[in-house]
């Protein structure tokens, strides 16, 4: 054995304080999602116009879109917790893709229908700037709490974990948005939503890359 490796093992063993084992990733994901559901429920009950939402919810397309959005969020959050552990398959990355495809397809169909109904007006910028601000501002607190939890595992591939977690956060924000969004989306609205989601994913990934580069705790046993 090389002397340096020998010395390293001695030092690591001397430094082996008891550590708290992380709970199962599915349980950790479920606890975070429940906390978000509780806070989201209070905000919806307190601030959204549920009568308008109830009328819009009679459209099965909206229901499918919301279920797909929520499923994307749940799947991405679960995948991010799994991926944060060293021995979980990289295949978890693809878990949110099927509901994401349904989400994109139903939103796209809604835009198309809107465009047919309203002609060129269907291209107008609706309340997009508000939606944009909503998705970003809801994503910030959700994103920070989720990233802090994911970092507990000190993931070996932090950028992938942050990107998948970012998708989850943005999808949950987009789902909550439906309660405060009393109209169908236009093409421009959809693009604005997509840009907001992309920003959340990019910021999460960049943050993870930046902290990985700093590697402040990387070599500190």
């Amino acid at each position: 054995m090389s002397g340096a490796t020998e010395r390293l093992i001695e030092r690591l063993a001397a430094d082996a304080e008891p550590v708290g084992r992380l709970r199962a990733p599915a349980l950790r994901a479920a606890l975070w999602l429940l906390a978000v559901a509780a806070v989201g429920g209070i905000v919806i009950a307190g601030f959204s116009d549920l009568d308008v939402f109830a009328r819009r919810a009679q459209d099965p397309k909206l229901v499918v879109e919301m279920i797909a959005t929520l499923a994307t969020g749940i799947a991405a959050v679960l995948a991010a917790f799994e991926l944060s552990l060293p021995d979980r398959a990289a295949g978890w990355t693809w878990l949110p893709l099927p509901p994401l495809a349904v989400w994109i397809a139903t939103s796209g169909y809604s835009c198309y229908r809107h465009w047919i109904a309203f002609g060129p007006d269907g291209w107008e910028l609706g309340e997009s700037t508000d939606c944009f601000r909503f998705i970003l501002s809801v994503s910030v607190p959700l994103g920070i709490t989720l990233m802090l939890l994911l970092r507990q595992a000190r993931p070996l591939a932090p950028v992938r974990v942050a990107a998948v977690g970012g998708l989850g956060v943005a999808a949950i924000a987009a789902c909550l948005l439906q309660f405060f969004h009393p109209f169908d989306v236009t093409v421009i609205d959809l693009s604005v939503h997509a840009v907001a989601v992309a920003i959340v994913i990019s910021v999460s990934s960049l943050w993870a890359r930046w902290s990985e580069r700093r590697g402040e705790e990387a070599a500190r046993p």
Partner: peptide, 11 residues
């Protein structure tokens, strides 16, 4: 070895 030490709580 350093990484094992750092992430030993994830096992």
């Amino acid at each position: 070895l350093l990484t094992v030490h750092r992430v030993r709580h994830t096992y």
